[in-house]
Design a protein around this nucleic acid. Structure first.
Lengths: 339, 339
DNA sequence: CTTAGCGGATCAAAGGTTTTCATCGAGGAG
DNA sequence: CTCCTCGATGAAAACCTTTGATCCGCTAAG
């Protein structure tokens, strides 16, 4: 071993006075190794500052020690949405904790999809975490075909057979929000929903409907799509104000839209919460605490969600035979001043 | 090759009727190969859906085809700050375009630093992009010691000798902002600054000072640290209102702080821009367009910055001999209603 | 006295690619 | 006709690790 080259297992073994195989066993915590050998090897490792060569290891074990984290989102949304940063951060932490690398891919264009396919099919990662909430997302069908352990965030569109996913209880959260408004004595409650090509939005709609015992026709008049954007929230609120006279409460399917809705209400001269009570969804602190008034919201714990996803994926990577599993995470109402 | 196993170069070579060596040459676009061989190999590749094994390749070339992207930030800020998501997104895109993997690491705790060190020293990536704006950041000293091509975002604290970085023209932007306020006829201009442990904040302070031709003592009375947070911006503004009677304009070193400052001004009953003109920094759309009134701000193009960083790193990876180089990106003033 | 068993170390093969070096054949110069 | 040159190709080494098979020295059982 030259001065500058990184030490190899061979060097470690030589210094410890054992064979390469034994040194390897020490590193992999095999039980079949004597205490003396163990100590000698460990000493050599620290003395030399040895780092296993990942490529060599991957070559023989057929494991890379890396997982891909895929986001499929229309461009503009992804970087306005604070949620995104949060998910990434949670993912980075959870993966670091189990010492696996996070390879991040944002797939948007068709080219990106091809690239992702090549990459995943190429066996460059051991598994993947997929965030793809939209209807008929090409990415999902691509990933689904691959013989690769995958855990989805939320329900991807289409058949769920054999898939692994961790979802928030969107419907339950929506019921929570709506029941809360009812318990405040509100009688005319409306809903600013997310786009109908996202299942989370649909689940929230369903929660709203069922909490009020509405059939589809009755519900339709009380709901308006805000597209999960601030501006959309504002417009949807305006539309509802025009269409539903006497409305006294609104459940908005995201905090960002709720911020828009509050603006709209203010313009219309309605006081919150006196005239109209508002409940959001996400409990995104950076938003919810800075609206006026501060926003009552349904908390979904993204950190927890991602942590569960990682745990599940790790399990999949270990024993090959975990059967399809869906996890549902609870949501809770956080009261502030808007309702 | 069995049915299910991924095809290897050997399989490709066999099918094309050439040797492994020749097949490899084709894949690496070596000139020393006959047209027929080239065609045969390419045909075999597509027929088999061959994907080079990255681990095997890395083992021999000592290149991984991946770079690390490191963020060093105190936890809370990183996921409040929309800037973060933007940088990541830009990085993902730019790296994907040159077909290198992005390994994301958020380093915060001491453990994280150790992990990052191990990882980088272990030769698991070819280079790194580092975002570490704070004074005496441990991460920078760690990375600096490594024999690894690194490009920094902005100036890291300490000696810049031999370092590669892409910075925004913070000082120039600050001059722009201040000159603009002067040109509006404002006479008593103050500054809400960022924390003095970030060089970008200091550069902006310097721009402010030099545009007004102030010495340090005179300047000190007109500046207040807002810590790059919304709440800090609000407090700093209040302090300045108390200390500098008759102030008629303020240059705030970030949009987030400016949002806080606007709240403070409103509370104090000052009209913007009539009584006090306000200019922010960052031009973060999600903020600047939604304050009231909408915020005039200095734009720094993060996408561009990251793109340059990636380009520079790629260059470093190719020819080993790019001499130390600092790039400075221009800033521009975006006029809205607050000034 | 033979042999099975056991803890533990070692040998050697395997994993897929790049790259150096040697070889081979064809064509040009002498 | 021989000798060289040159371009294309192939054989084999090297990269570093894991792991199944093997081996060694001993004890305990038959």
């Amino acid at each position: 071993m030259s001065i500058h080259a990184r030490p190899t297992l061979e060097d470690v073994a030589a210094r410890a006075g054992v064979s390469r195989a034994t040194a390897s066993r020490v590193l992999n915590a095999s039980p079949r190794v004597s205490p003396e050998a163990l100590e000698a090897v460990n000493a050599a490792v620290t003395a030399l500052g040895y780092q296993p060569n990942r490529a060599a290891r991957a070559l023989v074990t057929r494991r890379t020690g890396a997982v891909a984290v895929l986001f499929s989102e229309p461009e503009p949304k992804i970087f306005d949405d604070p949620h995104f940063a949060r998910l990434i951060r949670a993912g980075a932490r959870a993966l670091a904790d189990v010492d696996v690398q996070m390879v991040l891919m944002l797939v948007h264009s068709h080219d990106d999809q091809m690239r992702a396919h090549r990459f995943l099919a190429g066996g460059h990662v051991d598994g993947a975490l997929v965030f793809a909430p939209h209807r008929n997302d090409e990415l999902v069908s691509i990933v689904k075909k691959l013989p690769l352990p995958v855990v989805y965030a939320g329900k991807p569109w289409g058949s769920l057979r054999g898939m692994h996913l961790v979802d928030n209880d969107n419907e339950g959260g929506a019921v929570l929000a709506t029941e809360h408004l009812k318990s405040l004595g509100r009688r005319k409650i409306v809903h600013v929903s997310g786009p109908v090509d996202e299942l989370s939005a649909i689940d929230r709609m369903n929660g709203f409907k069922s909490a009020l015992g509405l059939d589809d026709r009755a519900a339709a008049r009380l709901m308006e799509d805000g597209g999960f954007t601030r501006e959309g929230g504002r417009k949807a609120m305006s539309a509802l104000l025009g269409r539903v006279p006497g409305l006294d409460a609104v459940f908005v399917a995201s905090d960002l839209m709720a911020a828009g809705a509050l603006e709209s209400l203010q313009e219309a001269g309605r006081r919150v919460p006196e005239d109209v009570a508002v409940v959001g969804f996400d409990d995104h602190v950076a938003i919810a605490e800075h609206t006026s008034p501060p926003l009552t919201s349904v908390r979904q714990d993204s950190d927890e969600q991602v942590k569960h996803m990682v745990e599940h994926l790790v399990k999949l990577l270990r024993d090959e035979t975990v059967k399809s599993k869906k996890q549902m995470l609870p949501t809770v109402l956080v009261r502030r001043e808007s309702a």
